[in-house]
Simulated scan of single mutants.
Amino acid sequence: MIYRGWGIMTLVTPIAGILLLAYFFPHDGAKGNIPLQQVLLGGGIGAAVNVLLGLWLNRAPRQKGVAAAHHFFFVPMQWAALVLVVVCAVVAVMR
């Protein structure tokens, strides 16, 4: 499997962040379109929540060579989500 434990939340929380932002702060433009800034903010907030969730879930010490209890693509979920936060921040700064 590509995830173990709650590692699937690495995908779910950024998507939920985008959808919640789109629902509570609708855009006045064309129907069905969401501005890039809103997508980046929602994805970044959702991924930041996932970083904290991953740190909390994977806080138990483990022996060397033992995989994390909650991972996504064999990387602990907090580090995979941190990459998403950094990507959202870099794209936002470049725009």
Rank of each mutant, 00 (worst) to 15 (best):
M1G: 15
M1W: 10
R4S: 15
R4E: 14
I8W: 05
I8G: 08
I8L: 13
I8F: 08
T10Q: 04
L11R: 03
P14T: 06
I15N: 04
I15D: 02
G17R: 01
I18V: 15
I18F: 01
L19M: 06
L19Y: 07
L20M: 10
L21G: 07
L21V: 03
A22I: 04
F24L: 03
P26D: 13
D28S: 15
G29S: 08
G29I: 10
A30H: 07
A30G: 13
N33Q: 15
N33L: 15
P35Y: 10
L36S: 09
Q37M: 07
V39G: 06
L40M: 11
L41G: 04
G42R: 00
G42P: 00
G43I: 01
G43M: 05
I45Y: 06
I45R: 03
I45W: 09
V49N: 06
L53T: 08
W56F: 15
L57K: 04
N58G: 00
Q63M: 13
Q63W: 10
Q63H: 14
K64E: 14
G65E: 07
A67W: 08
A67H: 09
A69C: 07
H70A: 05
H71K: 03
F73N: 12
F73H: 03
P76M: 00
P76I: 02
P76V: 00
M77A: 05
W79N: 04
W79D: 07
A80W: 01
L82D: 04
V83M: 07
L84Q: 12
V86D: 07
V86Q: 06
V87K: 10
C88M: 04
A89H: 09
A89Q: 09
V90T: 09
V90C: 12
V91N: 05
V91Q: 06
V91D: 03
M94A: 15
R95D: 14
R95K: 14
